[in-house]
Computed example of a mutant assay.
Amino acid sequence: MRLTQGTFSFLPDLTDEEIRLQIDYALRQGWACSVEFTDDPHPRNTYWEMWGLPMFDRHDAAGVLQEVRACRAARPEHYIKVNAFDSVRGFETMRLSFIVNRPDEEPGFRLDRTDAQGRVQRYGISGYASERPAGERYASAG
C-alpha cells in the first residue's frame, strides 16, 4: 500500500531535483521550510518528529535539501516530509507539505470494526506497522 498524505503523494516519488524545485518555489513565496520524519504515518498522526529546527533563515534550496539528505541518511526506513510554513499574519499555516522519503516496504492499514450497543458500528484505522515497537516498525523481517 502506498501512503498518500500531502501534496504530490499520488505521483511517483519526486527526484532530488524535483524536490529542490518545490523548495525553491516555497522559499520564493517567503515560506519557512522544515523537515519531519515518522515511523507511524497514521492519517491522524499530524505530529511527526522534527529534524532540526524550522529553517526561517534559508533563502537557498541547497541548505534545505542538505537537511533532507541528512535525515534520509539517519532515518532511511522512515517517512520524511518537507513542510513550508507561511508566517504572514492572518495565514500562519502550512502552505505546502510533501513526502520525500518512504520505507522500502509500506505495510498499509486495516479497517477495524467494533460493534457497539444496539446496531451501532464504529470504524477505525490501524496501521500494520504500529504492531511493532517504535524504531523497529520498518526493520526487515529477515
Rank of each mutant, 00 (worst) to 15 (best):
R89T: 12
A70T: 02
F98T: 14
L65S: 04
H42R: 08
Q29V: 09
S97H: 09
R69E: 03
E67A: 10
I80R: 03
F85C: 02
C33L: 04
Q22I: 10
V64T: 03
S34F: 12
D60N: 08
E92Q: 11
N83P: 12
T46K: 13
G30T: 07
E49T: 15
V64N: 02
Q29Y: 12
H42G: 06
S34P: 13
R44I: 01
L21F: 15
W48S: 04
T46A: 08
A70Y: 03
H42K: 08
E36D: 15
R72P: 11
E92S: 14
T46P: 15
H42N: 04
E67N: 14
D86A: 02
A61K: 01
T93R: 15
K81V: 06
P43Q: 06
M94L: 08
P41S: 00
C71W: 10
N83Q: 11
A73N: 01
A84R: 01
G63A: 08
C33V: 01
C71T: 06
G90E: 06
R44L: 14
R58I: 08
D24F: 09
A84M: 02
L53A: 14
Q29D: 05
A74T: 10
I23K: 01
D60Y: 14
L65R: 03
E36N: 12
A74G: 04
Y79M: 05
Y25N: 14
D57E: 14
R28N: 15
V88N: 13
H78W: 12
W48T: 04
D24P: 13
D24Y: 09
A84S: 01
F37M: 07
V35H: 01
A70C: 11
F56H: 11
E49S: 12
V35T: 07
M94N: 11
K81N: 09
E92H: 12
L96K: 07
C33F: 00
V35K: 00
E77T: 07
R95F: 10
S87C: 10
V88D: 12
A70M: 08
H59L: 14
R72W: 03
W48F: 03
C71F: 08
K81H: 11
I23P: 01
L27D: 07
K81Q: 10
T38R: 01
A70I: 03
T93Y: 06
A61E: 04
I23Y: 05
A62L: 14
P41D: 02
Y47T: 15
S87A: 13
F98D: 07
E92K: 11
A74I: 10
A26G: 05
A73V: 05
T93H: 13
A62Y: 09
G63W: 03
E36R: 13
R72S: 05
P43V: 10
E92V: 05
R44V: 04
L21I: 15
Y25F: 12
F37A: 08
H78R: 04
R75T: 07
D60P: 05
A61L: 00
R69D: 03
V82F: 00
Y47H: 15
A73Q: 04
R58V: 12
I23T: 07
Q66K: 06
F91I: 15
F85E: 07
T38G: 07
P76T: 01
N45I: 02
